[in-house]
Computed example of a mutant assay.
Amino acid sequence: MDLSIVIVNYNTKRLTMDCIKSVINSKIGFTYEIFVVDNASTDGSCEEIIATSLNVELIQNKENVGFSRANNQAIEQSTGRYVLLLNSDTIVNENTLNTMLQFMDINQAIGASGCEVNLPDGSLDKACHRGFPTPSASLYYMLQLSRFFPRNPKFNAYHQSYLNMKSIHEIDCLVGAFMLIRREAINEVGMLDEEFFMYGEDIDWCYRIKEAGWKNYYNPTVSIIHYKGASSRKKPFKIVYEFHRAMYLFHKKHFARKYPFIINGIVYCGIGLKLGVSALSNLAKHGR
């Protein structure tokens, strides 16, 4: 098997069906399998998949186990030379999969790669092209210095948009909405860290892949459409909490030992403060 595609579904029945169909309708010149892992959806997603007799492997969880664990469930059963993490709220363009696999086959030093990810309005989903969130990169990003110094690598270290966004190049971090990983890289660094519930696991994986000596690459010659946030609108405070918890987990895991106590304290306080502000804003917006 050449490619194992893993789609995690949580109450996004229509989007998931459209995503699967976009894969099936792609121009694919290789063997592939599709896994759909359902995290206890209540919108009839599993019934729809079964009723339409789509050629997918369906894993049905009795509870929402999160993004990392759900992906790992499918990866454990998969047999492809490559594994593709694909969000349920994406549409794959017809040439994307072929091009990306050919790209990986030609470039054996690449452990993970991603394509251009566009939002429905045609703008770039900036999460598909990132540097690692070091304390300085995160600070400059929060202060929005990248808006004033877009060509400065220091102040724009988080999204690294000072690079040529239309050329193929090495990048620190891809996005889990579309991440193509070489099986050998997975065997070497391990699977997704299940401590991350639904944010940060892609950054963590990219960090470990790069630390192991593999390269992460951004290939904007092909693209997908990302209807961003479709499955995260159901429990807004839960999403806010998990987003900030992922920041804490990533820093503690990879950066805490590299920085003095005072820097770590500032980082943790900053995350806590940002969580508080975001929670209050969320409460005002949703009334709960």
Rank of each mutant, 00 (worst) to 15 (best):
R69L: 03
R69M: 00
A70N: 05
A70V: 08
N71E: 01
N71G: 01
N71V: 02
N71A: 06
N71S: 01
N72A: 08
N72L: 06
Q73E: 05
Q73H: 08
I75N: 01
I75E: 07
I75D: 07
I75Q: 02
Q77G: 07
Q77I: 03
S78F: 06
S78A: 14
S78K: 08
T79F: 06
T79C: 05
G80F: 09
R81V: 00
V83W: 01
L84M: 04
L84Q: 03
L84Y: 04
L84C: 09
L85W: 06
L85I: 07
L86E: 00
L86M: 05
N87I: 10
N87D: 13
N87W: 02
I91R: 15
V92F: 01
V92T: 12
V92Q: 11
V92H: 07
E94V: 07
E94N: 10
N95F: 14
T96R: 00
T96I: 04
L97P: 08
L97M: 09
N98W: 02
T99I: 11
M100W: 14
L101K: 09
Q102V: 02
Q102G: 15
F103V: 09
M104V: 12
D105A: 13
D105R: 12
I106C: 07
I106N: 11
N107R: 14
N107G: 10
N107W: 02
N107T: 11
Q108G: 04
A109Y: 12
A109N: 15
A109E: 15
I110N: 06
I110P: 06
I110Q: 09
G111N: 05
A112H: 10
A112Q: 15
A112N: 14
A112R: 14
A112F: 03
S113F: 04
S113K: 12
S113G: 14
C115S: 08
C115K: 07
C115F: 04
E116V: 01
E116Y: 00
V117Q: 12
V117R: 01
V117L: 09
N118S: 11
N118I: 08
N118G: 03
L119V: 04
P120G: 11
P120V: 09
P120R: 11
P120I: 02
D121V: 00
D121F: 06
D121C: 00
G122M: 08
G122W: 03
G122L: 10
S123R: 07
S123L: 04
S123P: 07
S123Q: 06
L124S: 02
L124A: 05
L124C: 07
D125M: 08
D125I: 02
K126I: 13
K126N: 14
K126G: 13
A127R: 11
H129I: 01
H129S: 00
H129P: 05
R130P: 13
F132C: 05
F132M: 09
F132G: 03
F132Y: 15
P133D: 10
P133L: 08
P133V: 11
T134F: 10
P135M: 12
P135Y: 02
P135R: 13
P135L: 13
S136R: 12
S136M: 14
A137C: 03
Y140K: 09
Y140L: 05
Y140F: 15
M142T: 15
